[in-house]
């Protein structure tokens, strides 16, 4: 009897058992291979992670000292002349990002609450608009702000940069905040309304406090992103060598300073880039860790 004829006479169950046994070893091998590939993919990620972080730390850590943080930059004249510090960029970063956050908080709350409360066409358009803005290239926000400020006033001012950063901060924070307030249990809201509280009071006293940890998560996330942005502020804040402490004057931020110094012919300025990079990563990391703490807290609160 041929094999084919033998198979013809087998019941489906026999065929299935036979197929399963025959393919078993190969399938196991393929599965292991698949997992090996996944492992490699994960390990590959750690190469640039290690590369970037070690480069910043190794090249940057000896720059980080008191003078670096507090002194103003000195334009170098030779490869060995002192370059001072980056107090100007630290001040600029605080000013530009700080004002952006101060403006972003009320705006984000307003828009998120508005989207939570409205279900009409307008709200749908706005919600989709925000999602579109999350994905828009940051450089286009810089161009837009430049077109309506610098092109008109012919001056660079720190707060123009804040305006541009709003386009980074508000959409990300809003997407997070809407998700946060929509996750507040309906029963809580109904309890508030049932007690005769006005909608605005329910929002202020019940929904926002309940969703607060997740709202903060969104804010800190967006701030940590805004801190590192170069493109949106590049065209509108100009540059300074001394801290101005005045948002109506030009400013320099850590990213724009790195961008400006990196092409320098003076090695000392390129060196300073790594110091600023390390400083920047530390600041960004700080806000990111904050956001994670609040995220963990909100997860705990929600069980």
């Amino acid at each position: 009897m041929t094999v084919a004829a033998a198979i013809d006479q087998m019941t489906p169950r026999e065929i299935i058992r036979r197929t399963s046994q025959k393919s078993g070893q190969r399938r196991q091998l393929l599965s292991n291979l698949y997992f090996a590939v996944l492992t490699i993919a994960l390990l590959v990620i750690f190469i640039p992670l290690y590369g970037v972080l070690s480069t910043i730390v190794v090249r940057g850590y000896h720059s980080l000292n008191w003078t670096f943080l507090t002194a103003n930059p000195i334009p170098p004249t030779s490869a060995t002349s002192p370059i001072g510090g980056v107090a100007n960029a630290i001040d600029g970063t605080l000013e530009v990002t700080g004002i952006a956050v101060l403006l972003a908080v009320p705006l984000t709350i307003l828009i998120s609450v508005a989207l939570f409360e409205t279900r009409n066409r307008l709200a749908r358009i706005v919600e989709q608009g925000i999602e579109i803005f999350v994905g828009m290239p940051a450089i286009t926000f810089g161009l837009f702000i430049a077109a309506i400020t610098v092109s008109v006033t012919h001056k660079f001012e720190a707060w123009y940069g804040s305006m541009a950063l709003l386009f980074i901060v508000v959409p990300v924070a809003t997407v997070n905040m809407i998700a946060a307030i929509r996750s507040v249990p309906q029963t809580l809201i109904e309890a508030g309304l049932g007690l005769g509280a006005r909608p605005s009071r329910v929002m202020m006293r019940i929904i926002l406090p309940t969703a607060l940890p997740r709202i903060l998560t969104g804010f800190f996330l967006s701030v940590s992103r805004a801190l590192g942005e170069t493109a949106p502020v590049l065209f509108v804040i100009g540059g300074v060598l001394v801290p101005s402490f005045n948002p109506r004057l030009p400013a320099t931020t850590l990213p724009t300073q790195i961008y400006a110094y990196f092409g320098s012919q003076f090695e000392s300025q390129v060196q300073a880039c790594w110091g600023m990079a390390l400083l920047l990563v530390i600041i960004v990391l700080f806000f990111n860790v904050l956001s994670r703490i609040f995220l963990a807290r909100s997860k705990k609160a929600n069980g």
Binding site: L110, T118, R198, P199
Partner: peptide
């Protein structure tokens, strides 16, 4: 959560200032 959330809002009566702010916010964004 998003889709569930769509169906949900506080009641719409009274609270004029609140309603007003909401409209202004949406219009401002647009």
């Amino acid at each position: 959560g998003m889709t569930v959330g769509r169906e949900r809002k506080l009641s719409t009566h009274s609270d004029t200032l609140y309603r007003g702010l909401i409209i202004v916010a949406l219009a401002f964004f647009v």
